[in-house]
Design a binder for these strands. Structure first.
Length: 279
DNA sequence: GCTATTTGACCCGT
DNA sequence: ACGGGTCAAATAGC
């Protein structure tokens, strides 16, 4: 199978999942369980992209697409090798400037009309005027860098005045479990199997809020083929025909949900890929 | 007083 | 040597 197409599909899936999570955050009636589900789907897409080592061959979107309304585009993914300690041995007294030069295993960029609200907690640690850049670049790292050693970081740079455009470059993945605190997956063990069935829809028919409703909203640009979204391979492998109804909705039995939640919560996605046969 | 942000200094990679 | 990434003291906000 063509890796580039896989990447494109994963990127699109991640964008839609991100959008779904943002919509849910906007609507308080969404249960924390559903929100967590969306969050895990989003994470799964990101991890899949991470694991796909040929992802750097993925070609960026054409810049002209960035003019689309309500848009947030992943314009590239790359690069670099394993991180390396580049810190010299400093005395405790003279540690200024002692740091690890950024060399993450993954980085990707997104461009949006507003600074991206991605649901994670970031702490700004620097700002720098960049040569030949109209606006200075801001540096953020995960607020849980210290307490959970989360290595995720990002850079935000305004790249255009009118309309305002911000480029956010992410480095590394969050290893902190902060988002689990307020939205842990909890299945009511007292519920009957029928009650605990979960309905997943891969049909892009949910209401599409306007930018006014979600001013920060990003990462959604329906494609002509969005109505024929494939089920993720995990679900294809997990679901039997009786689990589907005519609307492309998927009703999962408790056992199937267990399989999927185990997959999504699995720290070792290699195992998950093997479990479901990989790509 | 605690936490987050700002900002100049410092170091690394090219 | 230079540009960019990070540190950490100073400052701001609560």
């Amino acid at each position: 199978m063509d890796h580039r197409k896989i990447c494109q599909e994963l990127v699109r899936g991640r964008e839609v999942a991100n959008r779904l999570r943002q919509v849910m955050n906007e609507h308080d009636e969404s249960s924390s369980f559903v929100q967590t589900l969306a969050k895990n789907v989003l994470r799964s897409f990101s991890n899949s992209l991470f694991l796909l080592d040929k992802y750097p061959t993925y070609e960026p979107y054409d810049v002209s697409q960035m003019q689309q309304k309500d848009s947030c585009f992943i314009i590239s993914s790359t690069k670099s090798e394993d991180s390396q300690e580049s810190c010299k041995s400093f005395t405790r007294k003279n540690r200024r400037g002692c740091y690890k030069r950024k060399r993450t295993t993954q980085e990707w960029e997104e461009v949006s009309e507003t600074p991206i609200v991605d649901g994670n907690q970031w702490r700004k640690y620097g700002q720098k005027k960049i040569l030949e850049a109209k606006y200075s670049r801001s540096y953020y790292r995960c607020s849980h860098k210290n307490d959970q050693n989360c290595q995720a970081s990002k850079q935000v740079q305004r790249i255009q005045e009118e309309p305002p455009l911000y480029k956010t470059t992410y480095f590394g993945h969050h290893t902190c479990n902060n988002d689990l605190l307020n939205s842990e997956i909890i299945l009511d063990s007292n519920s009957s199997p029928a009650e605990t069935s979960i309905l997943l829809s891969f049909n892009n028919t949910f209401p599409n809020p306007t930018k006014q409703e979600c001013p920060f909203l990003s990462s959604f640009h329906p494609s002509p083929s969005s109505d024929c979204y494939m089920h993720p391979p995990e679900l294809e492998a997990t679901l039997d025909d009786s689990s589907r109804n005519n609307n492309n909705d998927v009703t999962l039995s408790p056992r199937q949900w267990d399989d999927i939640s185990t997959l999504l919560d699995s720290a070792d996605l290699d195992d998950a890929f093997h479990h479901f046969g990989g790509f």
